[in-house]
Simulated scan of single mutants.
Amino acid sequence: MSDRINVPSGGTFEATVGYSRAVRVGDQIWVAGTTAELPDGTAVGGDDIGAQAREALRRIVAALAEVGAGPEHVVRTRMFVTDIGRWSEVGDAHGEVFADARPAATMVEVKALITQALMVEIEVDAVVHDGR
C-alpha cells in the first residue's frame, strides 16, 4: 500500500509482536496502546498514574506529529487503567491534551498491563483532511 506510513515505537516488543506505534493510511491514523514503559520494565512517573498518563500522551502526540497530525485531529481515545479509583488523575492528563478537541473517550479498568509497573495505557484514532 503506497500511502501507508508506519511509525515505529522503538519498543522491545515491536519486532516480536509485529506492531507499530502508529499507522497512517490516507487521512486516518491509528495510534496503538501507548504506555510510559522504560526499557528496564519500569515506568516514567513511577507509581504516579497521572505522570504515566502524561508520558503516554506525550509519546502519542509525538507519533501523531510524525505523520502530520496533532491532538486536534484525534476523534477517539481509549484509556485502560489498572485502578479505576484513580480515574481523575488520568482524566486530568487527558484533558490537558484534548480539552479543545474533545474526542469521544472511553476509560475502562483492566486487571493488568504488560508489566507490573504500568498503570495506564492509551490509544487514539485521528482523522486529518489535508489532501493526502
Results as ranks from 00 to 15, higher is better:
Ser2Phe: 11
Arg4Val: 15
Arg4Asn: 09
Ile5Tyr: 01
Gly10Gln: 14
Gly10Lys: 14
Phe13Lys: 15
Glu14Thr: 12
Glu14Phe: 07
Ala15Met: 13
Ala15Tyr: 10
Ala15Gln: 14
Gly18Ile: 10
Ser20Met: 09
Ser20Gln: 11
Arg21Glu: 07
Arg21Ile: 05
Arg21Met: 08
Ala22Gln: 00
Val23Thr: 03
Val25Asp: 03
Val25Gln: 04
Val25Arg: 05
Gly26Phe: 09
Gln28Trp: 12
Ile29Cys: 00
Ile29Met: 01
Ala32Leu: 04
Thr35Phe: 07
Thr35Leu: 04
Thr35Met: 09
Pro39Val: 15
Asp40Arg: 14
Gly41Leu: 06
Ala43Ile: 15
Val44Ser: 05
Val44Glu: 07
Asp47Val: 15
Asp48Gln: 03
Asp48Gly: 01
Gly50Ile: 02
Ala53Asn: 08
Ala53Ile: 11
Arg54Phe: 01
Arg54Glu: 01
Glu55Gln: 10
Glu55Phe: 09
Glu55Lys: 10
Arg58Trp: 03
Arg58Leu: 01
Ala62Tyr: 02
Ala63Val: 03
Leu64Lys: 09
Leu64Trp: 06
Ala65Tyr: 05
Glu66Pro: 07
Gly70Thr: 08
Pro71Leu: 02
Glu72Gly: 15
His73Lys: 07
Val74Gln: 00
Val75Ile: 10
Arg76Cys: 04
Met79Thr: 06
Phe80Tyr: 12
Thr82Gln: 07
Asp83His: 06
Asp83Arg: 08
Asp83Thr: 09
Asp83Val: 09
Ile84Trp: 04
Ile84Leu: 09
Arg86Lys: 14
Arg86Tyr: 05
Trp87Asp: 11
Trp87His: 11
Trp87Thr: 10
Trp87Tyr: 12
Val90Gly: 01
Val90Leu: 01
Gly91Asn: 11
Asp92Lys: 13
Asp92Phe: 13
Asp92Trp: 13
Asp92Leu: 12
His94Gln: 04
Val97Asn: 00
Val97Pro: 00
Val97Arg: 02
Phe98Arg: 01
Ala99Val: 13
Ala101Trp: 03
Ala101Lys: 05
Ala101Thr: 07
Ala104Pro: 13
Val108Asp: 02
Val110Cys: 04
Lys111Met: 15
Lys111Ile: 15
Ala112Glu: 12
Leu113Glu: 01
Leu113Thr: 07
Leu113Ser: 03
Ile114Asn: 13
Thr115Ser: 06
Gln116Ser: 15
Ala117Pro: 06
Ala117Met: 04
Leu118Glu: 13
Met119Thr: 15
Met119Val: 12
Val120Met: 05
Glu121Trp: 06
Glu123Asp: 11
Val124Lys: 02
Ala126Ser: 00
Val128Phe: 03
Val128Gly: 02
Val128Asn: 00
His129Gln: 15
Arg132Met: 05
